[in-house]
Simulated assay, not measured.
Amino acid sequence: MSANTDRYESAVARYFEAWNAREPQARVKAVAVAWAADGSYTDPLADVRGHEQIAAVIAAAHDQFPGFAFRLTGAVDGHHDTARFSWELVSEAGGTPSEGGSAPVAGSDVVTLNAEGRIKDVLGFLDRVPAGA
């Protein structure tokens, strides 16, 4: 594995730590570790900048889908300062999708990293979204 691959995978791991942080203080800390201070997050439902606003978007996702967690699906791919990956939202209780074990939410994100490997920008794409979201 190359040093660059490690860089992308480490950044994405920190990204998921932030998205899966349940407690507000842990979430704030994880966002600060993953994102640059002026970092942004943009998807079809949100367009925010800065740690406080990013943490608020993550909190809203937890409020909408209690008991679910974000997980990586597939490999992280990257070049230069950009990485892409796919994810899904799954029940922490387990189970299969037909048993209600998985929320029908999935997407792909593209992140741009700064020189320190922290996220500058996220462009998120939602591949599956439940009705009314």
Score class of each variant (00 low, 15 high):
Gly50Cys: 02
Gly67Ser: 08
Pro44Ser: 04
Thr42Leu: 07
Val57Ala: 14
Arg14Thr: 08
Ala37Gly: 06
Ala26His: 10
Leu72Thr: 04
Asn20Ser: 14
His51Gly: 08
His51Gln: 06
Arg49His: 09
Ala18Ile: 09
Phe68Ala: 15
Ile54Phe: 07
Ala56Glu: 09
Ala36Tyr: 00
Gly74Leu: 03
Ala75Glu: 13
Ala83Asp: 06
Ala36Asp: 12
Glu23Trp: 05
Ala26Cys: 09
Pro24Asp: 15
Val28Ala: 15
His62Arg: 10
Asp77Ile: 15
Ser40His: 00
Phe16Gln: 05
Gln64Pro: 00
Ala30Phe: 05
Arg14Pro: 00
Lys29Leu: 11
Gln25Pro: 06
Ile58Ser: 03
His62Lys: 09
Val28Asn: 07
Tyr41Met: 07
Trp19Thr: 02
Gln64Glu: 13
Thr73Met: 07
Val76Thr: 12
Val28Met: 09
Pro24Ser: 14
Pro44Asp: 04
Pro66Lys: 11
Val48Gly: 06
Asp81Leu: 11
Thr42Arg: 15
Val76Asn: 06
Ala60Glu: 14
Ala36Trp: 03
Ala60His: 07
Leu72His: 01
Gly67Pro: 05
Asn20Thr: 13
Trp35Met: 02
Ala60Leu: 14
Gln64Trp: 08
Ala55Lys: 06
Ala61Cys: 10
Ile58Gly: 03
Arg27Lys: 15
Gly67Gln: 12
Tyr15His: 14
Ala30Asp: 10
Ala32Tyr: 01
